[in-house]
Write a protein that binds this DNA or RNA. Structure first.
Lengths: 213, 213
DNA sequence: ACATCCCCCTGACATTTGTCACACGCAGTC
DNA sequence: GACTGCGTGTGACAAATGTCAGGGGGATGT
Protein backbone atom coordinates (compact mmCIF):
# COMPACT_ATOMS: atom_id res chain seq x y z
CA UNK A 1 0.00 0.00 0.00
CA UNK A 2 2.54 2.60 -0.90
CA UNK A 3 1.17 6.04 -1.34
CA UNK A 4 2.25 7.61 -4.54
CA UNK A 5 2.30 11.30 -4.10
CA UNK A 6 0.79 12.06 -7.50
CA UNK A 7 -2.82 11.03 -7.31
CA UNK A 8 -5.64 12.10 -9.54
CA UNK A 9 -7.10 15.51 -8.82
CA UNK A 10 -4.26 16.69 -6.56
CA UNK A 11 -1.96 15.29 -3.90
CA UNK A 12 -3.11 13.62 -0.73
CA UNK A 13 -2.76 16.09 2.12
CA UNK A 14 0.12 15.83 4.58
CA UNK A 15 -1.22 14.50 7.88
CA UNK A 16 0.16 16.57 10.74
CA UNK A 17 0.32 16.05 14.52
CA UNK A 18 0.62 19.20 16.64
CA UNK A 19 2.04 18.98 20.17
CA UNK A 20 2.40 22.07 22.37
CA UNK A 21 1.35 22.65 25.95
CA UNK A 22 0.13 26.19 25.25
CA UNK A 23 -3.43 25.73 24.02
CA UNK A 24 -3.55 29.26 22.69
CA UNK A 25 -0.67 28.63 20.32
CA UNK A 26 -1.66 25.13 19.40
CA UNK A 27 -5.19 26.09 18.53
CA UNK A 28 -4.13 29.15 16.61
CA UNK A 29 -1.52 27.17 14.74
CA UNK A 30 -4.02 24.50 13.81
CA UNK A 31 -6.31 27.17 12.42
CA UNK A 32 -3.56 28.69 10.31
CA UNK A 33 -2.29 25.39 8.94
CA UNK A 34 -5.87 24.50 8.04
CA UNK A 35 -5.76 27.33 5.52
CA UNK A 36 -3.13 25.41 3.56
CA UNK A 37 -4.86 23.01 1.18
CA UNK A 38 -2.15 20.37 1.28
CA UNK A 39 -1.83 20.21 5.09
CA UNK A 40 -4.24 18.45 7.43
CA UNK A 41 -3.96 18.57 11.21
CA UNK A 42 -5.17 15.15 12.30
CA UNK A 43 -4.30 15.31 16.00
CA UNK A 44 -3.29 17.69 18.79
CA UNK A 45 -1.60 17.04 22.13
CA UNK A 46 -0.72 19.12 25.19
CA UNK A 47 1.96 16.90 26.74
CA UNK A 48 4.71 14.47 25.78
CA UNK A 49 2.89 11.24 26.66
CA UNK A 50 -0.29 12.51 25.03
CA UNK A 51 1.66 13.29 21.86
CA UNK A 52 2.91 9.70 21.74
CA UNK A 53 -0.56 8.29 22.26
CA UNK A 54 -2.00 10.53 19.55
CA UNK A 55 0.77 9.55 17.15
CA UNK A 56 0.07 5.86 17.69
CA UNK A 57 -3.63 6.38 17.14
CA UNK A 58 -3.51 8.67 14.11
CA UNK A 59 -0.18 7.79 12.44
CA UNK A 60 0.66 11.27 11.12
CA UNK A 61 3.15 11.93 8.31
CA UNK A 62 4.81 14.75 10.25
CA UNK A 63 4.89 15.42 14.00
CA UNK A 64 5.42 19.06 14.99
CA UNK A 65 6.65 19.01 18.60
CA UNK A 66 7.28 21.79 21.08
CA UNK A 67 10.59 21.41 22.90
CA UNK A 68 9.35 22.13 26.41
CA UNK A 69 6.28 20.12 27.34
CA UNK A 70 5.13 18.50 30.57
CA UNK A 71 5.88 14.78 30.87
CA UNK A 72 8.34 14.16 28.06
CA UNK A 73 10.09 16.94 26.14
CA UNK A 74 10.01 17.18 22.35
CA UNK A 75 13.29 15.35 21.80
CA UNK A 76 12.22 12.45 24.03
CA UNK A 77 9.00 12.11 22.05
CA UNK A 78 10.95 12.22 18.78
CA UNK A 79 13.25 9.47 20.03
CA UNK A 80 10.29 7.26 20.92
CA UNK A 81 8.60 7.94 17.57
CA UNK A 82 11.76 7.02 15.67
CA UNK A 83 11.44 3.41 16.77
CA UNK A 84 7.66 3.15 17.01
CA UNK A 85 6.69 4.94 13.79
CA UNK A 86 9.77 5.08 11.55
CA UNK A 87 7.73 6.55 8.68
CA UNK A 88 6.69 9.55 10.75
CA UNK A 89 8.98 12.54 10.22
CA UNK A 90 9.55 14.67 13.30
CA UNK A 91 10.33 18.35 13.74
CA UNK A 92 10.87 20.59 16.76
CA UNK A 93 9.48 24.08 17.32
CA UNK A 94 10.95 25.99 20.22
CA UNK A 95 10.79 29.39 21.87
CA UNK A 96 14.40 29.88 22.88
CA UNK A 97 16.74 27.52 21.09
CA UNK A 98 19.81 26.39 23.01
CA UNK A 99 22.65 25.03 20.88
CA UNK A 100 22.84 21.70 22.74
CA UNK A 101 19.17 21.05 22.16
CA UNK A 102 19.66 21.19 18.42
CA UNK A 103 22.44 18.63 18.63
CA UNK A 104 20.37 16.32 20.80
CA UNK A 105 17.43 16.72 18.45
CA UNK A 106 19.41 15.84 15.35
CA UNK A 107 20.84 12.81 17.14
CA UNK A 108 17.24 11.74 17.83
CA UNK A 109 16.46 11.79 14.11
CA UNK A 110 14.59 15.09 14.08
CA UNK A 111 14.50 16.55 10.57
CA UNK A 112 13.39 20.11 11.29
CA UNK A 113 14.35 22.59 14.01
CA UNK A 114 12.86 26.09 14.00
CA UNK A 115 12.28 28.91 16.50
CA UNK A 116 8.81 30.28 17.16
CA UNK A 117 9.79 33.55 15.55
CA UNK A 118 9.12 32.19 12.05
CA UNK A 119 5.85 33.02 10.32
CA UNK A 120 3.10 30.46 9.87
CA UNK A 121 3.59 30.62 6.11
CA UNK A 122 7.24 29.71 6.57
CA UNK A 123 6.34 26.91 8.97
CA UNK A 124 4.00 25.42 6.39
CA UNK A 125 6.79 25.41 3.83
CA UNK A 126 9.13 23.73 6.29
CA UNK A 127 6.55 21.06 7.07
CA UNK A 128 6.41 20.28 3.35
CA UNK A 129 10.21 20.22 3.19
CA UNK A 130 10.41 17.80 6.08
CA UNK A 131 7.63 15.64 4.67
CA UNK A 132 9.55 15.37 1.38
CA UNK A 133 12.37 13.76 3.34
CA UNK A 134 14.67 16.77 3.48
CA UNK A 135 16.00 18.55 6.53
CA UNK A 136 15.61 22.13 7.62
CA UNK A 137 17.45 23.85 10.46
CA UNK A 138 17.08 27.53 11.25
CA UNK A 139 20.30 29.21 10.03
CA UNK A 140 20.78 31.31 13.16
CA UNK A 141 20.33 28.37 15.51
CA UNK A 142 22.70 26.31 13.36
CA UNK A 143 25.35 29.03 13.57
CA UNK A 144 24.98 29.17 17.35
CA UNK A 145 25.34 25.42 17.62
CA UNK A 146 28.48 25.39 15.49
CA UNK A 147 30.13 28.21 17.39
CA UNK A 148 29.23 26.61 20.72
CA UNK A 149 30.73 23.28 19.65
CA UNK A 150 30.60 20.04 21.61
CA UNK A 151 30.46 19.76 25.35
CA UNK A 152 33.95 19.44 26.87
CA UNK A 153 32.50 17.89 30.02
CA UNK A 154 32.92 14.24 30.94
CA UNK A 155 29.94 12.16 31.99
CA UNK A 156 30.57 12.54 35.72
CA UNK A 157 31.22 16.25 35.42
CA UNK A 158 27.90 16.80 33.67
CA UNK A 159 26.11 14.54 36.14
CA UNK A 160 27.45 16.38 39.19
CA UNK A 161 26.85 19.75 37.58
CA UNK A 162 23.24 18.74 37.19
CA UNK A 163 23.00 17.77 40.85
CA UNK A 164 24.55 21.13 41.74
CA UNK A 165 22.06 23.01 39.58
CA UNK A 166 19.64 23.94 42.35
CA UNK A 167 22.34 25.41 44.57
CA UNK A 168 22.59 22.50 47.00
CA UNK A 169 25.68 22.36 49.25
CA UNK A 170 28.50 19.93 48.46
CA UNK A 171 27.61 17.56 51.28
CA UNK A 172 24.14 16.93 49.88
CA UNK A 173 25.48 16.42 46.37
CA UNK A 174 28.08 13.99 47.66
CA UNK A 175 25.44 11.99 49.46
CA UNK A 176 23.14 11.84 46.44
CA UNK A 177 26.03 10.78 44.19
CA UNK A 178 27.50 8.39 46.79
CA UNK A 179 30.92 10.04 46.54
CA UNK A 180 33.38 11.64 48.94
CA UNK A 181 32.90 15.42 49.32
CA UNK A 182 36.44 16.02 48.04
CA UNK A 183 35.68 14.11 44.87
CA UNK A 184 32.58 16.17 44.21
CA UNK A 185 34.52 19.39 44.67
CA UNK A 186 37.18 18.16 42.32
CA UNK A 187 34.74 17.35 39.51
CA UNK A 188 32.88 20.59 39.88
CA UNK A 189 36.12 22.52 39.95
CA UNK A 190 37.22 20.76 36.78
CA UNK A 191 33.93 21.53 35.06
CA UNK A 192 34.13 25.18 36.10
CA UNK A 193 37.66 25.43 34.71
CA UNK A 194 36.59 23.95 31.37
CA UNK A 195 33.77 26.47 31.13
CA UNK A 196 35.95 29.39 32.30
CA UNK A 197 33.58 29.95 35.19
CA UNK A 198 34.44 31.54 38.52
CA UNK A 199 32.64 28.81 40.49
CA UNK A 200 30.25 25.92 40.09
CA UNK A 201 27.14 28.09 40.08
CA UNK A 202 28.36 30.19 37.20
CA UNK A 203 29.37 26.94 35.51
CA UNK A 204 25.81 25.65 35.80
CA UNK A 205 24.51 28.84 34.21
CA UNK A 206 26.97 28.65 31.31
CA UNK A 207 26.32 24.96 30.68
CA UNK A 208 22.57 25.68 30.67
CA UNK A 209 23.02 28.48 28.14
CA UNK A 210 24.96 26.23 25.85
CA UNK A 211 22.46 23.40 26.26
CA UNK A 212 25.06 21.06 27.75
CA UNK A 213 23.03 20.13 30.77
CA UNK B 1 -20.97 38.30 5.79
CA UNK B 2 -22.78 37.34 8.96
CA UNK B 3 -22.66 40.14 11.44
CA UNK B 4 -24.25 39.32 14.74
CA UNK B 5 -22.89 42.07 16.87
CA UNK B 6 -22.41 44.99 14.56
CA UNK B 7 -25.47 44.46 12.39
CA UNK B 8 -27.34 47.30 13.94
CA UNK B 9 -24.32 49.54 13.62
CA UNK B 10 -24.55 50.02 17.35
CA UNK B 11 -21.22 48.68 18.64
CA UNK B 12 -17.92 49.84 17.27
CA UNK B 13 -15.38 47.00 17.16
CA UNK B 14 -12.77 46.79 19.92
CA UNK B 15 -9.43 47.97 18.53
CA UNK B 16 -6.67 45.59 19.69
CA UNK B 17 -2.87 45.85 19.75
CA UNK B 18 -0.96 42.53 19.79
CA UNK B 19 2.62 42.43 21.10
CA UNK B 20 4.62 39.17 21.19
CA UNK B 21 8.14 38.44 19.99
CA UNK B 22 7.16 35.05 18.61
CA UNK B 23 5.85 35.83 15.13
CA UNK B 24 4.31 32.40 14.87
CA UNK B 25 2.05 32.99 17.84
CA UNK B 26 1.33 36.62 17.11
CA UNK B 27 0.29 35.92 13.55
CA UNK B 28 -1.80 32.94 14.50
CA UNK B 29 -3.45 34.89 17.27
CA UNK B 30 -4.27 37.76 14.95
CA UNK B 31 -5.92 35.33 12.55
CA UNK B 32 -8.04 33.81 15.29
CA UNK B 33 -9.12 37.11 16.77
CA UNK B 34 -10.05 38.28 13.28
CA UNK B 35 -12.77 35.64 13.30
CA UNK B 36 -14.53 37.53 16.09
CA UNK B 37 -16.76 40.18 14.57
CA UNK B 38 -16.41 42.63 17.42
CA UNK B 39 -12.62 42.51 17.66
CA UNK B 40 -10.24 44.26 15.29
CA UNK B 41 -6.47 43.85 15.44
CA UNK B 42 -5.18 47.27 14.42
CA UNK B 43 -1.46 46.79 15.14
CA UNK B 44 1.18 44.18 15.92
CA UNK B 45 4.61 44.47 17.55
CA UNK B 46 7.54 42.13 18.20
CA UNK B 47 9.30 44.07 20.96
CA UNK B 48 8.59 46.37 23.89
CA UNK B 49 9.64 49.65 22.25
CA UNK B 50 7.84 48.71 19.05
CA UNK B 51 4.68 48.01 21.03
CA UNK B 52 4.84 51.51 22.52
CA UNK B 53 5.37 53.12 19.13
CA UNK B 54 2.49 51.17 17.63
CA UNK B 55 0.23 52.12 20.53
CA UNK B 56 1.00 55.82 20.05
CA UNK B 57 0.32 55.58 16.33
CA UNK B 58 -2.88 53.52 16.42
CA UNK B 59 -4.38 54.28 19.85
CA UNK B 60 -5.92 50.84 20.49
CA UNK B 61 -8.69 50.20 23.02
CA UNK B 62 -6.92 47.14 24.45
CA UNK B 63 -3.21 46.21 24.36
CA UNK B 64 -2.48 42.48 24.63
CA UNK B 65 1.16 42.20 25.77
CA UNK B 66 3.46 39.22 26.12
CA UNK B 67 5.39 39.27 29.40
CA UNK B 68 8.80 38.40 28.00
CA UNK B 69 9.81 40.53 25.04
CA UNK B 70 13.12 42.01 23.91
CA UNK B 71 13.70 45.65 24.89
CA UNK B 72 10.97 46.27 27.45
CA UNK B 73 8.91 43.54 29.09
CA UNK B 74 5.13 43.56 29.10
CA UNK B 75 4.78 45.20 32.50
CA UNK B 76 7.17 48.01 31.56
CA UNK B 77 5.13 48.70 28.43
CA UNK B 78 1.93 48.68 30.46
CA UNK B 79 3.43 51.18 32.89
CA UNK B 80 4.38 53.52 30.06
CA UNK B 81 0.95 53.19 28.44
CA UNK B 82 -0.81 54.01 31.71
CA UNK B 83 0.53 57.57 31.59
CA UNK B 84 0.70 58.04 27.82
CA UNK B 85 -2.66 56.55 26.84
CA UNK B 86 -4.82 56.37 29.97
CA UNK B 87 -7.85 55.23 27.95
CA UNK B 88 -6.01 52.17 26.64
CA UNK B 89 -6.69 49.06 28.75
CA UNK B 90 -3.75 46.68 29.08
CA UNK B 91 -3.55 42.93 29.61
CA UNK B 92 -0.69 40.47 29.91
CA UNK B 93 -0.42 37.05 28.30
CA UNK B 94 2.39 34.85 29.54
CA UNK B 95 3.79 31.36 29.12
CA UNK B 96 4.92 30.57 32.63
CA UNK B 97 3.31 32.86 35.18
CA UNK B 98 5.42 33.70 38.21
CA UNK B 99 3.45 34.99 41.21
CA UNK B 100 5.54 38.18 41.54
CA UNK B 101 4.89 39.14 37.94
CA UNK B 102 1.17 39.19 38.55
CA UNK B 103 1.61 41.55 41.48
CA UNK B 104 3.89 43.85 39.49
CA UNK B 105 1.42 43.79 36.62
CA UNK B 106 -1.56 44.74 38.77
CA UNK B 107 0.48 47.55 40.32
CA UNK B 108 1.14 48.80 36.79
CA UNK B 109 -2.58 49.07 36.13
CA UNK B 110 -2.88 45.91 34.05
CA UNK B 111 -6.49 44.69 33.98
CA UNK B 112 -6.04 41.17 32.63
CA UNK B 113 -3.48 38.44 33.33
CA UNK B 114 -3.76 35.06 31.63
CA UNK B 115 -1.49 32.12 30.79
CA UNK B 116 -1.02 30.93 27.23
CA UNK B 117 -2.82 27.72 28.07
CA UNK B 118 -6.23 29.36 27.58
CA UNK B 119 -8.11 28.88 24.34
CA UNK B 120 -8.47 31.64 21.76
CA UNK B 121 -12.20 31.70 22.38
CA UNK B 122 -11.59 32.34 26.05
CA UNK B 123 -9.02 35.02 25.25
CA UNK B 124 -11.53 36.84 23.07
CA UNK B 125 -14.02 36.84 25.95
CA UNK B 126 -11.39 38.19 28.30
CA UNK B 127 -10.49 40.96 25.88
CA UNK B 128 -14.16 41.99 25.91
CA UNK B 129 -14.22 41.82 29.71
CA UNK B 130 -11.15 44.04 29.97
CA UNK B 131 -12.49 46.46 27.40
CA UNK B 132 -15.68 46.80 29.42
CA UNK B 133 -13.55 48.09 32.28
CA UNK B 134 -13.56 44.93 34.38
CA UNK B 135 -10.61 42.86 35.49
CA UNK B 136 -9.78 39.24 34.83
CA UNK B 137 -7.00 37.22 36.45
CA UNK B 138 -6.49 33.51 35.81
CA UNK B 139 -7.72 31.72 38.96
CA UNK B 140 -4.74 29.38 39.17
CA UNK B 141 -2.21 32.18 38.85
CA UNK B 142 -4.12 34.20 41.42
CA UNK B 143 -4.01 31.28 43.85
CA UNK B 144 -0.25 30.93 43.34
CA UNK B 145 0.27 34.63 43.93
CA UNK B 146 -1.75 34.57 47.15
CA UNK B 147 0.06 31.54 48.53
CA UNK B 148 3.44 33.00 47.60
CA UNK B 149 2.59 36.32 49.25
CA UNK B 150 4.68 39.45 49.21
CA UNK B 151 8.41 39.57 48.88
CA UNK B 152 10.03 39.61 52.31
CA UNK B 153 13.23 41.07 50.86
CA UNK B 154 14.34 44.64 51.46
CA UNK B 155 15.42 46.83 48.55
CA UNK B 156 19.13 46.24 49.11
CA UNK B 157 18.68 42.52 49.56
CA UNK B 158 16.87 42.24 46.25
CA UNK B 159 19.41 44.47 44.53
CA UNK B 160 22.39 42.43 45.74
CA UNK B 161 20.61 39.18 44.98
CA UNK B 162 20.23 40.41 41.43
CA UNK B 163 23.94 41.21 41.20
CA UNK B 164 24.68 37.74 42.55
CA UNK B 165 22.40 36.11 39.98
CA UNK B 166 25.10 35.19 37.48
CA UNK B 167 27.28 33.47 40.06
CA UNK B 168 29.85 36.25 40.47
CA UNK B 169 32.14 36.09 43.52
CA UNK B 170 31.48 38.38 46.49
CA UNK B 171 34.42 40.67 45.71
CA UNK B 172 33.01 41.57 42.32
CA UNK B 173 29.52 42.17 43.70
CA UNK B 174 30.96 44.37 46.45
CA UNK B 175 32.84 46.43 43.89
CA UNK B 176 29.82 46.85 41.64
CA UNK B 177 27.66 47.88 44.58
CA UNK B 178 30.37 50.05 46.19
CA UNK B 179 30.04 48.21 49.50
CA UNK B 180 32.37 46.35 51.86
CA UNK B 181 32.58 42.59 51.16
CA UNK B 182 31.31 41.86 54.65
CA UNK B 183 28.21 43.94 54.04
CA UNK B 184 27.44 42.10 50.84
CA UNK B 185 27.79 38.76 52.56
CA UNK B 186 25.50 39.91 55.31
CA UNK B 187 22.72 41.01 52.97
CA UNK B 188 22.92 37.87 50.92
CA UNK B 189 22.93 35.76 54.05
CA UNK B 190 19.88 37.62 55.30
CA UNK B 191 18.10 37.12 51.99
CA UNK B 192 18.94 33.42 51.98
CA UNK B 193 17.60 33.05 55.52
CA UNK B 194 14.33 34.76 54.59
CA UNK B 195 13.91 32.42 51.63
CA UNK B 196 14.94 29.32 53.63
CA UNK B 197 17.78 28.75 51.16
CA UNK B 198 21.04 26.95 51.87
CA UNK B 199 23.13 29.67 50.20
CA UNK B 200 22.83 32.73 48.00
CA UNK B 201 22.67 30.73 44.76
CA UNK B 202 19.70 28.71 45.91
CA UNK B 203 18.20 31.98 47.14
CA UNK B 204 18.49 33.46 43.65
CA UNK B 205 16.72 30.44 42.21
CA UNK B 206 13.88 30.63 44.72
CA UNK B 207 13.43 34.38 44.29
CA UNK B 208 13.30 33.91 40.52
CA UNK B 209 10.65 31.20 40.87
CA UNK B 210 8.50 33.44 43.00
CA UNK B 211 9.02 36.39 40.66
CA UNK B 212 10.67 38.47 43.38
CA UNK B 213 13.70 39.39 41.34
C1' DA C 1 10.93 64.06 73.82
C1' DC C 2 11.47 59.49 74.14
C1' DA C 3 11.40 54.68 73.17
C1' DT C 4 11.09 51.37 69.59
C1' DC C 5 11.65 49.27 65.38
C1' DC C 6 13.64 48.39 61.09
C1' DC C 7 17.02 49.06 57.62
C1' DC C 8 21.73 50.02 56.40
C1' DC C 9 26.50 49.10 57.11
C1' DT C 10 30.81 46.94 59.12
C1' DG C 11 34.55 43.70 60.98
C1' DA C 12 35.90 39.20 63.36
C1' DC C 13 35.22 34.35 63.49
C1' DA C 14 33.90 29.49 61.97
C1' DT C 15 32.46 26.83 58.09
C1' DT C 16 32.23 25.69 53.38
C1' DT C 17 34.31 25.61 49.05
C1' DG C 18 37.98 25.52 45.45
C1' DT C 19 42.86 24.12 44.29
C1' DC C 20 46.56 21.04 44.27
C1' DA C 21 49.33 16.72 44.32
C1' DC C 22 48.71 12.05 43.99
C1' DA C 23 46.89 6.90 43.38
C1' DC C 24 44.17 3.51 40.72
C1' DG C 25 42.14 1.26 36.61
C1' DC C 26 41.42 1.04 31.79
C1' DA C 27 42.06 1.92 26.74
C1' DG C 28 45.09 2.47 22.85
C1' DT C 29 50.04 2.53 20.91
C1' DC C 30 54.82 1.23 20.12
C1' DG D 1 55.13 -6.15 27.95
C1' DA D 2 55.82 -1.33 28.74
C1' DC D 3 54.48 3.33 27.85
C1' DT D 4 51.15 6.94 27.57
C1' DG D 5 46.96 9.42 28.11
C1' DC D 6 42.51 9.96 30.21
C1' DG D 7 38.78 9.45 33.38
C1' DT D 8 37.89 8.42 38.13
C1' DG D 9 38.51 8.95 42.98
C1' DT D 10 40.67 10.85 47.44
C1' DG D 11 42.63 13.86 51.19
C1' DA D 12 45.29 18.17 52.86
C1' DC D 13 45.67 22.98 52.49
C1' DA D 14 44.41 27.87 51.26
C1' DA D 15 40.80 30.94 49.94
C1' DA D 16 36.06 32.27 49.62
C1' DT D 17 31.71 32.24 51.93
C1' DG D 18 28.18 32.36 55.66
C1' DT D 19 27.21 33.62 60.60
C1' DC D 20 27.31 36.51 64.42
C1' DA D 21 27.31 40.66 67.41
C1' DG D 22 26.97 45.36 67.12
C1' DG D 23 26.93 50.70 65.79
C1' DG D 24 24.50 54.59 63.32
C1' DG D 25 20.34 56.84 61.34
C1' DG D 26 15.54 57.65 59.90
C1' DA D 27 10.50 56.65 60.63
C1' DT D 28 6.70 55.70 63.79
C1' DG D 29 3.91 55.49 67.90
C1' DT D 30 3.27 57.00 72.81
Amino acid sequence: MTDDRSATGGERPVRVLLADDEHLIRGALAALLALEDDLLVVAEAASGPEALAMARAHRPDVAVLDLQMPGKDGVAVATALRTELPDCRTMIVTGHGRPGHLKRALAAGVRGFVPKTVSAQRLAEIIRTVHAGNRYVDPELAADAISAGDSPLTAREAELLELAADGAPIAEIAERAALAPGTVRNYLSSAAAKLSAENRHAAVRIARERGWL
